[in-house]
């Protein structure tokens, strides 16, 4: 029980995938034009994340180390294909609102990142809770961004009208607004954290974010170790300079 709560706290607050690790940026910015879309995307990704953590953790002793990335990708892609068919059948309106970003859950760094960083090394039950925590953190972040953009841009809150038409700032539902809202939220988080904590968080966010991405990147090339290493180190060096 303790580990379960700890994993969930870790996913939602300490290592929030969106605000702290800055992973999975594409869906975060693209589909959050309204609160309900953000919630839908967050929940769909969470389902895939929890199931992929479960399967990968259960198979962790069977999957050979050298081909683990391609194996993970196949597992995640199959889950996403299944999800796509289910959504098409039962929630067609959400399916068409999220569009291309549903199949793109496959390349969401959060999922492969968690598979590599946690599920591939831990027992089944903690992995499930890790998936729930991370998924919840992602869902909360997406819903928050979506709700802010919806209120500012279209003057509604989950469909309820609260801002009169003359006071709506339509740019917030368009592409630039997504960047602005996320920038403000990340800056707010930086501001609220104490200085030394902030520094540490900034470091981990960078190294983790890029490690997450390069880790996923390895997927295609389980064998090309030298290239991976140079890729990772090039990333690290660049981040260090900053």
């Amino acid at each position: 029980m303790k580990t379960a709560l700890e994993r969930i706290y870790n996913g939602v607050i300490k290592e929030n995938p969106t605000f702290v690790l800055l992973l999975g940026m594409c869906p975060t910015l693209a589909v959050t034009t309204s609160g309900i879309n953000g919630l839908g995307m967050g929940l769909s990704s969470s389902v895939v994340l929890i199931l992929s953590n479960l399967i990968i953790s259960a198979l962790r002793k069977i999957i050979p180390n050298g081909v683990r990335m391609p194996a993970y990708i196949v597992i995640v892609a199959s889950l996403v294909t299944g999800l796509q068919l289910v959504m098409q059948a039962y929630v067609p309106s959400l399916y068409s609102a999220l569009g291309i970003y549903i199949p793109l859950i496959v390349v969401n760094c959060i999922i492969l990142g968690r598979a590599e960083a946690y599920a591939g090394k831990n027992k089944v039950v903690p992995s499930i809770f890790d998936g729930i925590g991370m998924g919840l953190g992602f869902t909360v972040a997406l819903t928050l961004i979506g709700a802010i953009r919806e209120v500012l841009g279209s003057g509604t809150f989950f469909g309820m009208e609260i801002v009169p038409e003359d006071y709506r700032i339509s740019i917030f539902v368009l592409a630039p607004g997504a960047f602005f809202v996320l920038a403000m939220l990340v800056a707010l988080r930086n501001k609220l954290m104490s200085p030394e904590k902030k520094k540490k968080a900034a470091e981990t966010s960078c190294s983790m974010g890029c490690a997450g991405c390069s880790m996923c990147g390895e997927s295609g090339c389980g064998t090309a170790d030298d290239a991976d290493k140079s890729g990772v180190s090039a990333y690290g060096a660049k981040e260090d300079k900053a």
């Binding site: 199949p103 793109l104 990147g217 295609g220 991976d228 140079s230």
Partner: peptide, 17 residues
């Protein structure tokens, strides 16, 4: 150096889809 990072560039899969 950049090639391994590209598999998860969602632009690649996005364009194909």
């Amino acid at each position: 150096v950049f090639l391994p990072l590209i598999t998860t560039n969602c632009a690649v899969l996005g364009v194909a889809l």
